[in-house]
Every structure is written in structure tokens, then in C-alpha cells.
């Protein structure tokens, strides 16, 4: 088991390195750098000015070197200006170049500086992430129990009316991406013209003070899309278990239906959905980006959009590290959890 986790960590690290390098590569392509220079300087810069800006900031070094600097395994770039002053990545304003550290990459805990928000990337990401964490927490609280209940109820008696009603609900919910359900929910519940005005159409204020009124719609929007999928998986798994021979054994042993479901079917039926829920996280991340944009909730997803839209390289890299980390950790949890839920694998 220990070896297994160790190996998984190795793969995770490799994946994270590969992915961040891809992000690094794409964001550092010349047209992107040119755009960055123009947004940082001004839009009427000549080509020569662009080159000198990039030169001064170390953007024109070879890709691998830049990546090494970001990681903190290569001494960071320094540029001596014409006036003799030295500027560089590691030299924060007010610190003399001699005192500044030579390495300042991720390994040193320095995530860089955001060109959009003019702030330290580490700080931005952690505050934004905590906001998104709040959103995700409520999404999970709503989505997982609801989806499991719907799935189990539907799969318990295949083909019954209850099954058909719930299955229709879950199929509709999987067919409605967040940007569609969000639009519909806002129209129905929040629109000042046609809607019921029960909730607010934006969640900006929820960042400081989340209330049912300003937070429910974004949570519901994300939860709905994921819910249908998990519910369908649970249903499929449940129907399969309910037709299994050992359920028949239990039935012919005289076990009551409610006990068959609770004692015999449930544990076996929840093995598959558990994996699904865990692997659902990457998709939830998508939902978060869409919903935070739609409801103007300034969390992690919103930051990602801002960073990507403005080619804020270091912020974007930090965001992708976080995203990749979330994905890989959930994969790991899903594998381990699967082993613990399924006695067949645990012992052998």
C-alpha cells in the first residue's frame, strides 16, 4: 500500500511537471509575450520597444531556462539597466540586488507577481481559493447527498414510475450545462422583469457575506449539472446490483425489501459512484469557472479567466498548478477509496 501511494505520488509529480511545462510553453509563445508587453506598456509600442521590454524582463531567454527559473532550480534572471541599476524577478522593490536571493521559484515558495492584479500570486490564489472553497463546500453538500438519494431510489426498482420520473430528471440535468441552467435560473428566480425575484442574480456580495439569497443560485447551478451525472451512475450501479444473484439469494432468504436495499445492495452499489464523484472534481472546476463568471463571484475560477484573458503568466501557472493538484489528488483519493470500499481488492 505504501509503495502504491509512493508510486502514485511519483506519477502525480511527473504529470504536474508536464502540465505546467505545457502551460508555460503556451503562455510564453512570442505572440502571447507581445500581447503581454503591450498590455503592460501601451498598445502603440513599436516592435523594437516590445523586444526591449521583453529583453529587460527576461522573457527572451530559452524556454527551458525560464521554466527552471519559475521552478526555482535555475538562478533567476537579472538585467542591468543602462543606469546601472539591476532589476530581476527576485528583487523586490526596496531590496538591494546583493541581498536578494538568487533562486526564487515555486520551490522557494515564491509564486511570482501577477501582472493583472499587481499583487503577489501566492496571496491572490490563496484568498481566491478560499472563496471558491466555500462555494465548492456548499455545492458538495447539496449535490452528493441529493445525487446519491436520487440514484439509489431510481435504481432500487428498475422500470418503476419512481425510476422513470427520477431518471428523466437526471437526464435533463445532465443535458443542461451550467451556462444554460444559470441563465434559466436567473430568468426564473432573479430577473427583475419576468422572474420571481426570490434570489439575486449576482453573487459578488457573497464573497464577504454569503446568504441564502445571494449564494443559492450559483451553488444550485453547479450542483444540478453534476448531480444528474452522479445520479445516473448511481442508478446504473444500483440496478446492476439489484439484479445480482446475491440479491436474489437475500430475497429468497426472506430478507425484507428495505433491508435488502440498506444492508445488501447499498454498499456494493456505492463503490462505482464513489469513483465517479471523485473524478467529477475536474468537471466541477469547469462549472466553477463558468458560474463564477456568470454570477460575478470573484473566486478562483473568475481569477483564472482574468489571468488567461490577459496572459498573466505567473498567475496562470499558479492556477494550473492548483487545478492539476486538485485533479490528481482526487484521482488518488478515488483509487484508495475504491480499495477500501471493495473488500475483494483490499485483501488480495
Amino acid at each position: 500500500m505504501g509503495l502504491f501511494i509512493l508510486r502514485r505520488f511519483g506519477v502525480m509529480l511527473l504529470t504536474a511537471l508536464c502540465l505546467t511545462f505545457v502551460v508555460f510553453f503556451l503562455t510564453n509563445l512570442y505572440p502571447n509575450l507581445e500581447k503581454l508587453a503591450k498590455t503592460q506598456g501601451n498598445f502603440r509600442m513599436t516592435d523594437a520597444e516590445v523586444t526591449s521590454y521583453l529583453e529587460k524582463n527576461g522573457y527572451l531567454q530559452p524556454m527551458v531556462v525560464k521554466y527552471g527559473e519559475w521552478l526555482g532550480v535555475v538562478p533567476s534572471f537579472r538585467h542591468t539597466n543602462e543606469d546601472g541599476s539591476v532589476q530581476g524577478r527576485c528583487i523586490s522593490p526596496g531590496v538591494s540586488p546583493e541581498d536578494a536571493p538568487r533562486f526564487c521559484g515555486v520551490l522557494q515558495g515564491d509564486w511570482g507577481f501577477s501582472t493583472v492584479f499587481k499583487d503577489d500570486v501566492g496571496a491572490i490564489v490563496s484568498t481566491r481559493l478560499s472563496l471558491t472553497g466555500k462555494l465548492m463546500f456548499w455545492v458538495l453538500m447539496l449535490m452528493v447527498p441529493a445525487a446519491l438519494i436520487v440514484g439509489v431510489l431510481a435504481g432500487m426498482k428498475e422500470g418503476s414510475k419512481l425510476d422513470r420520473t427520477l431518471s428523466t430528471f437526471s437526464i435533463i440535468s445532465t443535458a443542461t450545462p451550467e451556462y444554460v441552467s444559470g441563465v434559466i435560473l436567473i430568468t426564473v428566480f432573479a430577473s427583475s422583469v419576468t422572474g420571481l425575484k426570490w434570489f439575486k442574480g449576482t453573487a459578488t456580495s457573497a464573497a464577504e457575506n454569503a446568504t441564502f439569497e445571494n449564494f443559492f443560485l450559483p451553488v444550485l447551478t453547479i450542483a444540478l449539472y453534476g448531480m444528474g451525472y452522479i445520479a445516473r451512475m448511481t442508478r446504473a450501479s444500483m440496478t446492476e446490483v439489484m439484479t445480482a444473484q446475491y440479491i436474489r439469494t437475500a430475497r429468497l432468504k426472506g430478507v425484507a425489501f428495505s433491508n435488502i436495499v440498506m444492508k445488501h445492495a447499498l454498499r456494493n452499489a456505492l463503490i462505482a459512484p464513489f469513483t465517479v464523484i471523485m473524478l467529477q472534481f475536474p468537471w466541477l472546476l469547469n462549472g466553477v469557472v463558468i458560474v463564477e463568471t456568470l454570477f460575478n463571484y470573484k473566486g478562483f475560477g473568475w481569477t483564472l479567466v482574468q489571468a488567461a484573458g490577459n496572459n498573466d503568466i505567473e498567475l496562470l501557472l499558479a492556477c494550473s498548478v492548483v487545478a492539476v493538484f486538485v485533479v490528481l489528488v482526487t484521482q488518488l483519493i478515488s483509487d484508495i477509496g475504491y480499495v477500501f470500499l471493495n473488500p475483494r481488492i483490499r485483501i488480495s
Partner: peptide, 29 residues
């Protein structure tokens, strides 16, 4: 499988934001 998992571990929106921009089209990627 490693390659496939690599792509799957990418948040789709991030990938789109990186790939589907006029600047990337300019590079010919």
C-alpha cells in the same frame, strides 16, 4: 495512458483559454 491522463488532468477551460486565442492561431500551432 499516461498521455491520455495528462490531457484529462487539464481543466478543459484552461486548455481552451490557452489554445483558442488569436495569438495562438498566429503561431500556427
Amino acid at each position: 495512458s499516461f498521455l491520455a491522463n495528462l490531457i484529462l488532468a487539464f481543466p478543459v477551460i484552461l486548455l481552451f483559454y490557452l489554445l483558442v486565442t488569436p495569438e495562438i492561431v498566429e503561431t500556427g500551432l
